[in-house]
Design a protein around this nucleic acid. Sequence first.
DNA 1: TCTCCCATGTTGCATAGGCAACACATTCCG
DNA 2: CGGAATGTGTTGCCTATGCAACATGGGAGA
Lengths: 199, 199
Amino acid sequence: MQKLDGVEDLRVRRTRKLLQQALIEGTVDKGFAALTVRDITSRAMVNRSTFYRHYHDKYDLLEQHINAIYEVLEEEGGIIGEGRHEGLIELFKHIQQFPDFYGVVLGAQADAFLSPSFRQQTRQRFLAYFQQTFSEATSDPETPPLDLKFTTVASAGCGALAWWLEQERPSTPEQFAHWMQQIISDILVSTRLRQDSEP
Amino acid sequence: MQKLDGVEDLRVRRTRKLLQQALIEGTVDKGFAALTVRDITSRAMVNRSTFYRHYHDKYDLLEQHINAIYEVLEEEGGIIGEGRHEGLIELFKHIQQFPDFYGVVLGAQADAFLSPSFRQQTRQRFLAYFQQTFSEATSDPETPPLDLKFTTVASAGCGALAWWLEQERPSTPEQFAHWMQQIISDILVSTRLRQDSEP
DNA sequence: TCTCCCATGTTGCATAGGCAACACATTCCG
DNA sequence: CGGAATGTGTTGCCTATGCAACATGGGAGA
């Protein structure tokens, strides 16, 4: 099935791309819940049997698509790279590259089903990021568990991203990154302060 | 190669569609002249050898794409149908369905090469249309050859369409059809008048 | 309840298309 | 000038995908 020695067959990459596109487009106009495998394959101009050679069902397709997008993000060094501010800007630029995808996964019209799975994944990514950047500052044994903070911040981040995507005329990634940075700092600082001022 | 009994293989239709899309997109950002077959196939995620199984070269691809679009137009009854005014409106609605295509073929950024071939095809279509609608009115032996009139009108039509497509906020097909109708009538009437008043 | 309908999965066989390699022409650059 | 690089066409073999036909299951309506 897979060529072990490196690049996959062009047909495989193309088929996957068409199915992933069709998934997003279909979700935009029918909603993820109402989408059938037939809808997806006919929109993608791919035979239904071929769908099952690649994915188990539409949930699998969604998950793999999310992973694929994250791979792009990581190849761009979006989250892990350089300074934190630059990292956020890269992240938001990346998001602007896939407006439909993030609109579906994060936006207002997102099905209730979608958000949790995405948020969970995002949390893990943010986690890796913040562990790098903030590990020294939060090494105090009295602070709340990192995990809790990350969950909070990740949720806040997702909410903010949704807001950003819903604007009809979104501000630049730079501007938005600046705001996010401030908000996140506020959260982290306030938890530390509360922590410091309590017994 | 072709299934004689009706519908083509899904792979065939998909491949052609991807190549045609890539042709338009590629023309938009490199120009038709600078486009290579490699550009087209890599953008379409289709192997170059497959390209040659379907088309002789990029000119062939363009021509077949134009024909395909015309087939859509005719299936919609765009030109041939009903009253002349309604026919024009259908035509313009059709054009709005393929903005990129018509933008390339007619718009300001169209390569000098493209317009003539398209204009020629368009002329033939307009010809069929006007032969139906205006044949009685122009049966006078003193009038200039139909062919000449059609060429003139088709050129005028193409120019007007280019204008329409270049507007950032195009008026509705109905509004535009109304203007076109008036302009075309003016042309036809003025030639008849000049014809009538000369010996 | 019992159908009818539609979506999901799965399979065997036929084929369009990918890949690699080729010859040839062209442009470009030292 | 000569050679490296790039684009065009073409070919033979291998494989991913299309197609048709199944079985299954769930939901809607008589």
